[in-house]
């Protein structure tokens, strides 16, 4: 056991678990579902399209976790943003609708951030409360009704459109991952986020404005959730209060499996992308295997458990 542990440590297995896991599960589905359409271009691109909103939420979540905070409210932000965009677009042009959607996300992130950074309330409790608060707001905004989005430019831009044959949702995913990765890895801000999560006291001593970092990461999370809401609205050509509600667990799993530490100081945007695709691929493959819904849930849970166990082993969590 000790020998195995030293080998895995040498290979830094945890670092690559998401990539190895992704390849292993991909290979498994590719072989077992070869006759069931798993490997078709349409199915593979579906996986990327279906996970696009969750991937973008996951990018925001990487920043929040890396700074040693958590945001449980992003699902509700997604719903509020989608509805805000859809409602505004009924009377105003697309640009104002987009601004309303993203603005709602940023504003809620700002609200979370103020409470966490300046009132010094724990982010777990703040966002647990705002999760409910904004879920309720999303429901009351439209009285539980779904709001259709009939703006073709919008649904093309955020949902069903394509540029040079590449679906817009894939472009959004790629764009968000590249920008997120660059900010996280290549900027001073990214380094400050990681330093804050690693050791807030030391970060403060070294001159980092810790409250400002905390406010910023929660706004990034809110902004990402807002963008995810617009993508959902584009994809479904409608907004509904349930959007984003069920993504919390998927996104947390994707981010943790992707190598971001739950208690801050370490993370990976690219890992979160692969983690998110892994979750989407699991959903997809288990359905194609013809499993019953309950069995799909059991198998998915077990695989996530194994992946998380491997990725958290020896990292001191």
């Amino acid at each position: 056991m000790e020998g195995l542990r030293s080998i895995t440590r040498k290979l830094d297995l945890q670092h690559y678990v998401v990539y190895l896991g992704f390849l292993a599960i991909f290979a498994f589905f590719a072989i077992t579902l070869s006759g069931d359409g798993f490997l078709t271009t349409r199915n593979l691109s579906n996986i990327v399209l279906q996970t696009a909103p969750a991937t973008i939420m996951a990018i925001g979540f990487v920043f929040v976790l890396s700074a040693g905070e958590i945001d449980l409210s992003f699902g509700s932000i997604t719903a509020v943003s989608a509805l805000a965009g859809a409602v505004v677009m009924q009377d105003f042009p697309m640009v104002i609708g987009i601004a309303a959607g993203l603005g709602a996300g940023l504003a809620i992130g700002f609200f979370n951030g103020l409470l966490v950074a300046y009132l010094r309330l724990p982010s777990f409790l703040v966002t647990l409360a705002t999760l409910g608060l904004f879920a309720g707001l999303a429901r009351s905004m439209t009285n539980l009704r779904s709001i259709p989005v009939i703006n073709d430019a919008f649904t093309g831009f955020f949902g069903s459109g394509a540029l040079f044959g590449i679906p817009s949702l894939i472009l959004w995913t790629l764009g968000a991952v590249i920008i997120g990765h660059l900010i996280y890895r290549e900027t001073r801000f990214g380094a400050h986020v990681i330093a804050t999560g690693d050791n807030p006291g030391a970060a403060r001593v070294s001159g980092i404005k810790v409250p400002r970092i905390r406010l910023a990461v929660l706004m990034i999370s809110g902004g990402c959730a807002g963008l995810a809401g617009l993508l959902y609205a584009g994809r479904l050509q409608a907004a509904k209060y349930t959007l984003g509600e069920s993504d919390l667990m998927t996104v947390i799993a994707a981010v943790i499996v992707g190598g971001t530490a739950l208690n801050g100081g370490k993370g990976s945007v690219v890992g979160a992308l692969v983690g998110s695709l892994l979750m989407g691929m699991l959903n997809n493959g288990l359905i194609l295997m013809g499993l019953s819904v309950s069995d799909q849930m059991i198998v998915r849970g077990l695989i996530i458990l194994i992946a998380v166990a491997i990725s958290l082993r020896d990292t001191g969590r």
Partner: peptide, 26 residues
């Protein structure tokens, strides 16, 4: 033959994904 069974858990986005996924089995 019943080739796929899904539950959207009342999530409209998941229902859309379920439809797309199931279509792979024609």
């Amino acid at each position: 033959e019943v080739v796929a069974t899904t539950s959207a858990g009342f999530d409209a986005a998941k229902q859309r994904s379920d439809i797309e996924t199931a279509l792979a089995k024609k």
